[in-house]
Write a protein that binds this DNA or RNA. Structure first.
Length: 492
RNA sequence: GCGGGAAUAGCUCAGUGGUAGAGCAUCACGUUGCCAACGUGAAUGUCGCGGGUUCGAGCCCCGUUUCCCGCUCCA
């Protein structure tokens, strides 16, 4: 059932109807790839983050951190993002082939480069641009001029018009090159010049790396130990798509584990297993989860080995978490660029070493969507269809609904008292509108695991029925024991 | 970024150039006896946005935005 595109649309629709996800800036026509978390969505998201945070920090060897989104621009030079985080693309309108502009030069021989530069010079009749081209040609030979012009914001498009597509040979069929860095730029202070440029972080990890020694010194941790952080990150993606899956603003849950270089393999394997189990323990079916190891030739610039935990979304397998061995790349680079030592002093061997880093980088937004997809179910009950979110108890936004069977004989008063007893311990919802069957179904649709109903017998003996979401079965328990009941059920 | 589809009430959708509609949902009143009950009444629309054609546009044309699908891409 999950393998048809309809499911995503149904989830999008349900998300809006029931307050999980709204489109950002909807009244203005929306903003591409931006989404808001509604009343239910923010509860689910917070529950996911809480489970992750607890699993990471309720142990001896991991410390928490919340670093700022804006960081010194040199951080991103050191990390490699300023140089490597670019992706200028063009398409051939004729044959639909896509090329990276920076690689296009390598696909053309010198003769073609010279020819295209000459043609550009001849065909250009805009005086300002013409003089720019002539200046370039006077300072460079034609081949070098090609490489400069192809990267030039103003001239690149004109030069592309003079080129033939390497695949189909059609001339002038390229789209405009989009020349940009995937990092969002902004400016600090009132003057918007190059000296005041800062970036919105494209990953939270660097905030951990630059604080490595601060955390170690203040907590007296010994290797191996980790630093965990949850926060927003931003990437100016060319295309957003698939609901929450590929967005420009997203939230990461990252834990960087610092180890002795010789132990890197051991901890990489260990964290792979721990992280996979985390998803399974929160209700994801093993069949919908897999590892995808990165082939060596596709590794990121900082990684020695890497794997993704992928989830089987309605649109196919997609990464929800990356686990990388980042080696000592980041700490070494930050030593280089900052001129400060980031070495760890081993008290036993009396050695100064630069630790290796095993990174676990989970997408909070992507996990959110995976948990939502996993939970979504359509069932037939007595000839009627019901839609139910089978969310894990720990993740469900609302833990229990409290319902008077009918609005008379004092039932609402008893139900309201139960609500007041429970409301500061659990996220609960009181509903007395319409028939009770309808109220059950409404709660099913937002994933509430328990429905507590006050009926005639409650008036006599203070017992209530508790209906379980997935089985729809009811048990009868004393209203005094509800708190203990929920506490037990929700903690497993 | 390319190609295809879509956008009308909160949701799902009908409306083929001539008065803006249905079902569900919402609200009020009545009713109520455990899985989307019923009656009566009410409220709800820049027909995604901007132009154009026309006596007249939700409908035709152009542009644009957003979403979905496929391709491409994802340091």
């Amino acid at each position: 059932m999950k393998n048809n595109g309809n499911v995503l649309e149904k989830i999008v629709s349900l998300s809006k109807r029931r307050g999980y996800i709204f489109q950002s800036s909807e009244i203005y026509g929306g903003l591409n790839g931006c989404w808001d978390y509604g009343p239910m969505g923010v509860e689910l998201l917070n529950n996911i983050k809480k489970e992750w945070w607890n699993s990471m920090t309720l142990r001896d060897d991991i410390e928490g951190l919340d670093s700022s989104i804006l960081m010194h621009p040199k951080v991103w030079e050191a990390s490699g993002h300023v140089d490597n985080f670019t992706d200028p693309m063009i398409d051939c309108k004729q044959c639909k082939a896509r090329f990276r502009v920076d690689l296009l030069g390598g696909m053309l021989n010198e003769k073609r480069k010279k020819k295209s530069v000459r043609a550009l010079n001849e065909n250009c009749n805009e005086s300002e641009l013409k003089s720019k081209i002539e200046k370039l040609l006077s300072e460079n030979n034609e081949v070098n001029a090609f490489d400069i012009i192809i990267e030039d914001e103003q001239l690149s498009g004109l030069l592309l018009q003079e080129l033939n597509c390497p695949q189909c040979g059609t001339k002038g069929s390229f789209t405009q090159a989009r020349q940009f860095n995937l990092m969002f730029k902004t400016f600090i202070g009132p003057v918007e010049d190059s000296g005041s440029v800062v970036y919105l972080r494209p990953e939270t990890a660097q905030g951990i790396f630059v604080n490595f020694l601060n955390v170690q010194n203040s907590t007296r941790q010994k290797l191996p130990f980790g630093i965990a952080q949850i926060g927003k990150a931003f990437r100016n993606e060319i295309n957003t798509k698939n609901f929450l899956f590929r967005t420009r603003e997203f939230e990461q849950m990252e834990m960087q584990y610092f180890v002795k270089p010789a132990d890197d393999k051991k901890w990489y394997d260990n964290w792979k297993e721990q992280r996979m189990n985390w998803y399974k323990n929160l209700g994801m079916n093993s069949d919908n989860l897999r590892f995808h190891d990165h082939p060596e030739n596709k590794l990121a610039h900082y990684a020695k080995v890497a794997t993704d935990i992928e989830y089987n979304f309605s649109f196919g397998w997609g990464e929800i978490e990356g686990i990388h061995n980042r080696t000592d790349f980041d700490l070494k680079r930050h030593e280089e660029f900052s001129g400060k030592s980031l070495k760890y002093f081993d008290e036993v061997t009396k050695e100064k070493i630069l630790p290796f880093i095993i990174e676990t980088s989970a997408g909070a937004s992507r996990s959110f969507m995976a948990f939502l997809t996993e939970a979504y179910a359509e069932e037939e009950v007595k000839g009627e269809q019901r839609v139910v979110l089978k969310l894990h108890n720990k993740l469900a936004p609302i833990k229990a609904s409290i319902l008077p069977l009918v609005n008379k004989d004092g039932m609402p008063e008893i139900a309201k008292k139960i609500k007041d007893d429970l409301r500061f311990k659990f996220k609960i919802f009181y509903d007395d509108k319409g028939a009770v069957g309808r109220r059950y179904r409404r709660q099913d649709e937002i994933g509430t695991p328990y429905a507590i109903t006050v009926d005639t017998q409650t008036i006599e003996d203070h017992t209530v029925t508790v209906r379980e979401r997935d089985s729809m079965e009811q048990i009868r328990i004393s209203s005094d024991s509800l708190s203990a009941f929920l506490h037990e059920k929700l903690s497993t």
